[in-house]
């Protein structure tokens, strides 16, 4: 499952932003509704990888956000949680996805050793 490789990418990114010896207290992420990411699997894989590492046992906070689409027929922008919703303006199905496909690591909270 690719939540595992995504988790490794996230941990590598976090490590780049930390000083050596820091512990991670919190990881805050946003998962778009149209991403191929299952938040529960992501949390599971992150915890599994973190257990084997030296970054501590941070709290993992995952917020799901709706996708923002723009109708290609009438230009209406609307939020949705799936690809089945027709345009609320004209009912068309042709659209472009403005956001909602990504996984964003928003911030980490870290603590340096005493």
């Amino acid at each position: 499952m690719h939540e595992l490789s995504l988790s490794q990418t996230i941990i590598d990114r976090i490590r780049q932003s930390m000083d050596e010896g820091d512990r991670v207290l919190e990881i805050a992420m946003t998962v778009g509704r149209l991403s191929c990411v299952n938040p529960a699997s992501l949390e599971f894989c992150l915890e599994a990888l973190l257990e084997e590492g030296d970054m501590g046992s941070p709290e993992i906070v995952i917020e799901r956000t709706p996708a923002l689409l723009r109708c290609r027929e009438c230009g209406t922008e609307f939020e949705t949680d799936d690809m089945y919703t027709p345009c609320p303006g004209c009912g068309a199905m042709a659209r472009e996805v403005l956001s909602g496909r990504d996984l964003v690591v928003d911030y980490v909270r870290v603590e340096s050793p005493d």
């Binding site: 996230i10 990114r13 512990r23 709290e59 990504d102 690591v105 928003d106 980490v108 909270r109």
Partner: peptide, 17 residues
């Protein structure tokens, strides 16, 4: 949690990479 440690903003979008 909010008052412990320091917050490091990343805004790292995995798919953007």
């Amino acid at each position: 949690m909010a008052d412990k440690g320091r917050k490091v903003e990343l805004r790292s979008a995995v798919m953007k990479k």
